[in-house]
Amino acid sequence: MRNFIPSWIRVPAVFFIIAGIVEYTIDSGDKPAFIEKPMVLLFLILVLLIIIAIEAIVSSINNVLYQSLDEAAKARYNAQKSKTPKLISWTSEAYQKLLGSKPMEEEHEIVLDHNYDGIKELDNNLPPWWIYGFYASIVFAAIYLVRFHVFNGENQYDELESDLVQAKIDIEEYKKNAKDLVDFNTVELLTETSDLKAGQKLFEMNCVACHKADGGGGIGPNLTDKHWILGGGINNVFKTVSEGGRDGKGMIAWKQSLKPAEIAQVASYLLQFQGTTPAEPKAPEGDIWIDKNAPTEDVVTESVEVQDIKED
C-alpha cells in the first residue's frame, strides 16, 4: 500500500504551496498581493485542495485494503511502517492529523453499528483543513463586507481609473527619454559631441550631394544663411527632414530611411552651419526666419541697460 503521490513530492509541494499562499496574503506595497492577483491565490488553494482530496481518497482505499489483510500481513505492514525515517514519519503524522482521520488500527472505534451487505461506515469528523478553511472564508467575507460595502473601499473600477492615469504618466515619461519616439513637437536641439558626430556622418552620407559638405547649397538650399523655405529651428528642420520638402520639387521624406533619433541628430548638426561662410554660397531662398522663443534685441538691450544702472 503506497501513497498516490510520493512523500518526496507531496511534502515539498504542500510546503511551497502554503508558502505561496502566505506570500500572497501579506502586504506588498499599497495593498495585499491577493487583492491585486486573486486568481493566483485561488489557483494555489485549488491545487492544495486537489492534493488533499487525492490523498484522502488514497488513504480511504488503503484503509479498506488494510482491513482486508490477515493478521500476519498487518503485522508485516506495521513493522515496515515503524522503520520509516522520523522526518517522513513526522510529516505523515502531521498530514494525517490535518486530514482528521484515525489510524487504520483505531478505526474499529468509530465503526457504525449498521452495515449494508457487509459494507460498514466510519463515523469520521470533518477534516480540520476543511473546518479551518470554512472559518477562514467567514472571516474573509466579514472583512470584505466591511471594507467594500461599509467603508466603500477602492473597487476594481477605481483601480482601473488610477492605473490608466498612472499609465498615461508613465507613457509621457517614457516618451521623454525614448529617443526614437521623438517627433517635431518634442524634439530638442542636441549638443552632445556624440550626437553631433553621428549627425555629421549621416549628413555626409545622405545630404552632401544636394547641400555640399560646408552647407553652402547646390541642388538644395543654402543652410548657412537666415533664409528658410519651410522654417528654421530644430522643430521645423526636423519636420522637413522627416516629412520631406515641397511637393514635386523638394527633398524626399527621410523618415522612411532614418529613425527619429537619427533625424534629430542630423537636424541638430546641419543647424551648426548657421552663421558660417561656405566656399560657394548659393543665393538665399525662402524667407528670413526668426526664432520667436529667442530673446529680441530690445529685451537684450534693456537687460544690458538695467545691468549698467545697477553697476552705476
Rank of each mutant, 00 (worst) to 15 (best):
M1L: 11
N3E: 11
R10P: 00
P12S: 02
P12M: 03
F16L: 13
I17G: 01
I18P: 03
A19E: 08
G20E: 07
I21E: 10
Y24Q: 00
K31A: 12
P38W: 05
V40G: 00
I45Q: 02
V47D: 06
I50E: 03
I54A: 02
N62M: 07
S68M: 13
L69I: 07
A72D: 14
K74E: 00
Y77L: 13
A79P: 03
Q80S: 13
S82Q: 15
L87G: 08
I88E: 10
S89L: 01
S92G: 13
S92V: 07
E93D: 11
A94P: 02
Y95P: 01
G100H: 02
H108L: 07
I110G: 03
G118E: 08
K120C: 09
K120T: 14
E121M: 09
E121Q: 09
D123S: 12
N124D: 15
F140N: 05
F140W: 11
V146N: 11
E154T: 09
Q156Y: 13
Y157C: 01
E159N: 12
E159K: 12
E161S: 09
E161M: 10
K168G: 08
N177R: 10
K179H: 02
K179M: 11
D180T: 05
T186A: 02
S194V: 12
K197A: 14
F203Q: 00
E204A: 10
E204Y: 09
V208P: 00
V208A: 06
L223G: 00
L223E: 04
H227G: 02
W228F: 14
L230N: 15
I234Y: 04
N235P: 04
N236Y: 06
N236K: 12
F238T: 02
K239M: 06
Q256W: 08
K259S: 13
K259A: 12
A261S: 15
I263W: 04
Y269V: 03
Q274E: 13
G275M: 01
P278F: 05
A279V: 14
A279F: 00
A279W: 04
A279R: 07
E280V: 13
G286Y: 06
D287R: 11
D291G: 06
K292A: 15
A294S: 08
E297G: 02
S303V: 07
E305Y: 08
E311D: 15
